[in-house]
Amino acid sequence: MSGGVAQLKHEGSQRQVAVAGGVAGLVSRFVIAPLDVVKIRLQLQIHSLSDPLSVRSIDGPVYKGTLGTLKHILREEGLTGLWKGNIPAEALYLAYGSVQFSAYTYVSHLLDTVPQPYTIPSSANSFVSGAVAGAFATTATYPLDLLRTRFAAQGRDRVYASIFASVRHIAEHEGPSGFFRGLGAGVSQIVPYMGLFFASYEGLKPLLANSAIPLPFGTSDAAAGIVASVLSKTAVYPLDTTRKRLQVQGPMRSRYVHRNIPMYTGVVSTLSNIWKHEGRRGLYRGLTVSLLKAAPASAVTMWTYERAMAAMLALNDKEA
């Protein structure tokens, strides 16, 4: 078992792991909020900039790249437009971070108790633990993710007046299942993503810790988080686009900033529809900003998690 696996799994109590994960999620969300809004807007844009016919009679903005989208939102909606959906997103990241790290350490400990000859390698332990933790955290916090997407998809005209109003409207007009639109794509995405992320992170961390090359953000934690996140995010990105398209389905679909979002019904049909009408680029629209977002987000998350855990352990030592 690598030193990185042992360090992440065995330091701190379950409560400390949950607190450190929650703090890491909050800090990470605050840092990358504007990029998250830009990514969602690009993912929901179905018209192609290379096809002039696709933007005819479009009632809504036509975004051109990450920087162009950023400038457009600032010009049309002001600085606060870049933080739309931040309240449910902060709640999402707080809950997700706590559940994710708690589930990861719990499953890791559970797998460590498997007797010989059924034990699995440390890399497989990290993959399975990360996949299970991601699936559990995604399902538990999915309604917050859906609300984050719907608020980020709003333009100058407000679709929902408040968080409470959005919850009430979805409950009344879409029922309980309305809060879980696109969950299949979310779980299908997060299982391989988190499995690959944690396996890559645990494998890269001890290697980068001994590297003679200057590391991003100055630490092996951050560097390992960046590389692991970029690799994992690229592999599963089409499912992320599918999830976003499904999350804005419902009776308010035509009132978001992109008025022409098609009607989708399921994961497979959405993937095939995007591929048929928008091509491969449609599946990867917003990937650049997603990678720009994912790298610092994961770096900040892992760096903050390690520092928060170290602070709590140091506090315990002083009290002892």
Rank of each mutant, 00 (worst) to 15 (best):
R255Y: 07
D221G: 03
S232C: 01
S229F: 11
A222P: 00
G286Y: 04
T234S: 13
S229Y: 11
S269K: 11
L231K: 03
R243S: 10
T241V: 15
D221C: 01
T241C: 15
R259T: 13
L231H: 04
Q247M: 12
R259N: 05
T219V: 07
V268Y: 11
R280L: 14
T265Q: 04
M263W: 07
I274W: 12
R255W: 04
Q247W: 03
T288A: 08
L239A: 02
V257P: 02
V248T: 09
L231I: 15
A228N: 08
Y256M: 07
S220L: 06
L271G: 03
W275G: 12
A224D: 01
K233D: 09
T234D: 10
N273T: 15
S272I: 14
G279K: 09
S272Q: 09
Y256A: 09
G282F: 06
T234G: 12
R245M: 14
Y264E: 06
T270L: 02
D221I: 00
T234W: 14
I226M: 15
M252Y: 09
K244P: 01
P251G: 09
T234P: 06
K233P: 06
S232D: 01
K276C: 02
Y284E: 04
V248A: 00
L239D: 05
L239I: 00
T242N: 05
R259M: 04
A222D: 02
R280Q: 11
G286M: 07
T234K: 10
L231Y: 11
A224R: 10
G286L: 01
T270N: 00
T265K: 02
V268N: 01
H277M: 08
T241E: 13
A224Y: 01
A228W: 12
G218V: 04
R253L: 10
H277P: 04
R243A: 10
G279F: 08
R243Q: 15
W275P: 00
R255T: 13
A223E: 05
K233R: 14
K276Q: 13
R253S: 08
L231D: 10
S220Y: 09
A222C: 09
T234L: 12
W275Q: 11
A222L: 07
L287Q: 06
G218P: 13
V236T: 15
S272R: 13
D221R: 03
L283Q: 02
G218K: 09
K276L: 11
S272T: 15
G282R: 05
V267E: 00
T234A: 13
R259A: 11
A235Q: 11
Y237A: 05
V227N: 06
S254W: 02
P238K: 02
L283W: 08
T242F: 02
A223M: 08
Y284V: 04
A224S: 12
R259I: 02
L287A: 10
R285F: 06
Q249D: 09
R243F: 14
S269R: 09
R280T: 05
V268T: 04
S232A: 13
G225A: 07
L246V: 07
R285M: 05
S254R: 06
P251R: 06
V257T: 14
L287K: 08
S232R: 07
G282W: 07
G250H: 12
S272C: 06
Y264Q: 03
G250M: 10
N273L: 12
D240F: 15
Q249Y: 09
N273D: 15
G282K: 05
G225V: 00
H277A: 08
T242Y: 05
I261C: 00
L283V: 14
Y256P: 11
V267N: 00
A224H: 01
S269T: 13
H277G: 01
G250D: 11
